[in-house]
Every structure is written in structure tokens, then in C-alpha cells.
Design a protein around this nucleic acid. Sequence first.
DNA 1: ATCGCTTCACGACCTATGTTATTTCCCGTA
DNA 2: TACGGGAAATAACATAGGTCGTGAAGCGAT
Lengths: 260, 260
Amino acid sequence: MQGSMDVSSGEQTPLGAFLNRIMQRSVLTADEQQAILDLPTQTVHLRGKQDFVHINEQVAYSCLVVSGVIARVGQTAKGARQITSVHLPGEMADLHSAVRPIGLGGMTALCPSTILRISHGAIRQVAARFPAIAEAFWRDCMLESAILLQWLLNVGRRDAQTRLAHIFCEVAVRLGRNRTAACQYDFPVTQEQLGDAAAMTSVHVNRSLRALHARGLLTVTRGRVTIHQWEALARAGEFDPTYLLADMEPHRQERLRISV
Amino acid sequence: MQGSMDVSSGEQTPLGAFLNRIMQRSVLTADEQQAILDLPTQTVHLRGKQDFVHINEQVAYSCLVVSGVIARVGQTAKGARQITSVHLPGEMADLHSAVRPIGLGGMTALCPSTILRISHGAIRQVAARFPAIAEAFWRDCMLESAILLQWLLNVGRRDAQTRLAHIFCEVAVRLGRNRTAACQYDFPVTQEQLGDAAAMTSVHVNRSLRALHARGLLTVTRGRVTIHQWEALARAGEFDPTYLLADMEPHRQERLRISV
DNA sequence: ATCGCTTCACGACCTATGTTATTTCCCGTA
DNA sequence: TACGGGAAATAACATAGGTCGTGAAGCGAT
């Protein structure tokens, strides 16, 4: 349990990384930034494949990803799993649970991961105290919602290869990889987990991955993704990063114009 | 353009219906309630099948459904459509766009509908002025997100009949139908639109609907849904209404405890 | 090195759902 | 009362992706 006190080195700490992300889309004053950096946290380490929040469990903490990959999962009556979102370092996996702690499904670590737990009370308090923070958090939740929306389109209406290509493009952008020519990143998830995210069988993930490889678009080997031609992969995945972009422009000038 | 002034008759007006919904999950003072009722609105009538917000269009208004059914839609490169959410009277179809006006896809009326447009500026202003309203709006957006999450699970991992059953159950609950024994409601959407929501072909919607009918679970005739046995349909659709429930309990006592 | 477990690779076969096309039903309108 | 257009109902056929089964390949622990 500690709050990062040094605002200048904020970018290096987990809370600093989170603040950084938030500020790509919202404008915050120094006070507000500090309030976020001062949130009390509790570090938790997780094994790979560890379900740490069960479906229908009601939690009192949100969880900030420090390292690894965290996923939210839903489950069918017959036990089929659907990963409904994936969270990378610097992201809050369930910020929304601060205002609505039910109906979020379970949470699991796709690989060995470290998270910071932050109590809902602290989050709601800082949001109530600083309206701009409330709006920033709200906006961050809506980014997540926009991603979810893309996933629904992806799963509902695209074929296997397109779907996977889209996912790999999205993760690349969210990891901040510059999308020019080739790039690579670590993404230590199994084909089974990939299937749970893309709503298909691990067998078919395997087939499709090899097909994408045969087309010269990307290579996935033991948790490392190599994109050979960004442009071609994005085309194959029908990927348009608009929904992920920083979007603070419309809000920059008019933050907090409280009349009266 | 009018603001409903009479707070006592609030329940009857569209804004009153919206406020009502919000208050199922959040506690608001009389002032705050009034501030919502005073939001300036603009009425718009829509034909059935009218796309009134195009994909990637950036809007300056959120839209409150007065009557009819409004849907958000995404689209594939080959033109396949995916309905990503459906909105019934009393709901705000895109409240989230107030804080994040991009990446929400298009909006369309599934049948002749009436909406109220409310400017993003007005929404953000009332939210900044009353932290409790910000939290309430944020929470309402998260309910929508929880629904979206269920849709992803539904589309990704359930078969056609289960999927449709789930949708009909959800709509029944959202329309406030009491879920005991039989019930019916108007839901004037075509099988094609149903297919766009459930991620399948209209042909297969037809097949599956007849199968559900043959199982004695429900009848769908020209925009009217009749559920014959709620329990059985809910079981067939693996429907658990938890994610839709009013959930203000944890927030009731501790609203706005701003510690300086 | 060797064991044991997990993940990856791949083949054979099966089925839920998509595709395409035609017919029937409904309902508003002339 | 007949006409016209959109939905709904069906039928025949095609296919993407699921299921089941078997090895091979990594990799960590002994």
C-alpha cells in the first residue's frame, strides 16, 4: 500500500502510466493529476491462468494492470468462455466497477501478471471531489466501451482470419507500437485464450494463424507477435484505429465551464 | 425546444421517463432531478429504417428515445451490418457520446420513432455542476456497457436459438415486463434486423424463431412478441437478469462524501 | 538427461449456419 | 376489390468452422 508521491517521476510508476493514458484524452490540472497519483494502492501478483475475480462476484476494488495481460471473461451455461476484454499495462481493467460493481463477469490473468488494487471508495471520492476527474474516468470507460463495440462487430460479422488480424492490430496500437511497416510485441497468450477472445476454437485459431502466416502478414511464436506488413495486415483485419485514438480536442478548451 | 418545468408530473414526459430510469440506480436530490428535467431538448421524428447518424459521423447531441426502437450499428468492409445496441423508450441511446463523440458507429431507427436531441454541452455542464449527476450518468453508461458485454458473450458463444431467446428476455425485462408466467410486448423489428442484432441471417432467424415457437416458448408475429413460459424461455436463453438490475444499494448511503 | 505437462500442429469428418431463389402472406393504397 | 411492395416462410445446396483424435514440440522440475 503506497501512493506515489513524486509527481515528476510519475511516468515511471504504474499510477503514472495510468495517468499518462488518461491525459491522452482529458485535460487535468496539476492538483487533479496529483490526486490521481495519490490514490492508495495495493500490489497483487497473479499466476498465469489465474481467475482472481469469479463471475458474479462483487468486488470493492478496481484493478490497474502493471504487467502482464488481464482479461474479463463471461461464460456460457455449457462452460464455453468468452473473453470480453483484454487489458494491457497502464490500463485499468475494471474502472467501471467503481460506479457499478455488478455484471462485469469474471477476471483472469492470461499470463503471469501484476496488478494494483484501488478501492472503489477512493476512486469515487476523487471523482466527486474533482469533476474533471469524473469526466476523465467516465471518458476512459467509454473508450473501453468503444473497443467492446468493435469486438462485437468483429465476432459477429467477420471471418476467422479477419477477426484475428483485427485483434493483433488493436493490441499493437494499444501497446503504442508505431504502425508503419513492421513491428513486434510480446503478447503471451495461448491459442486457446486467443480463441476465447475471438470466439472460436483453438484448432481454428491455429489454422487461421498459419493461414495469416502463409499470406506473409504476421508470425506468432510462443507469445511473440511479429507483424510483417502493417498496412496489409490492417487491410486484412479491416482495422481502422479511429475508435482508439486520443480524442481530447473537443474538450480541451471547454473543460469545467460551470456556470454559477 | 422546451424544458419540462413541472416536476410533479415529471414521470409522464420523456425527460421524466429518463430521470426515472436513472433514479433506479442512483440517488439524486430534488435540485439535481430538476436540473435533469430542465435540460433543453429538441424533438425529432424518424421514419422506420432511417439511418440518422452515419458511421464515423461526429455528433453534438445525445438522443433520448421517446417512442420506437433506436439501434447503434457497425458495418463490415463487405457491408455486413451488426447492431451493437438497441434502445427503448426512456433510454438515452448514446449518452456516452457526450464525453466521447467518436467511435460509436452509426445510429438508425428500426421502426418509426421519435427522439429528443440533447446537446453534449448541456449534458456535460449539468454533470460538471452536480457530481452526483456525473456519477449517475457514468453509471448509466456502464449499464449499457454491461449489456454490450452480454451481447458479445451471446453472439460469440451461443447458438442461434439460445441467442434469440436471450435477446427476447432482455428486451422484456428492459421494457419492465414482469417476468412471471406469460407476457407480451410490441417490438416492431423485422427478422432481418433481428439477424443484424444476433449476428445471423434473416433466413436463420426465421428458422430459429419457428423452432422456438415449436418448442412452445414464444411467438413472434408482426412486431408483437408473446412469451408463453417465462421460466422456460429464460432457461433456453441462459438468461440471468442480474446484469440489468437496479443496483443503487451500495451507493445509497455514501453519495458524495467529499472529504474536503 | 529424462519425465511430465502444456501448447502447437494437423488430419478426417460433421453440423450449424450461410447462400440463393421462389412462393406466400400481409397490409396499405388506389 | 384488385394492386404492389415489403416481410415471412420454405427449399436446396454450399461452406466455414466445430469436434475428435493423435502426435510432436517446448519447457520446467527433478
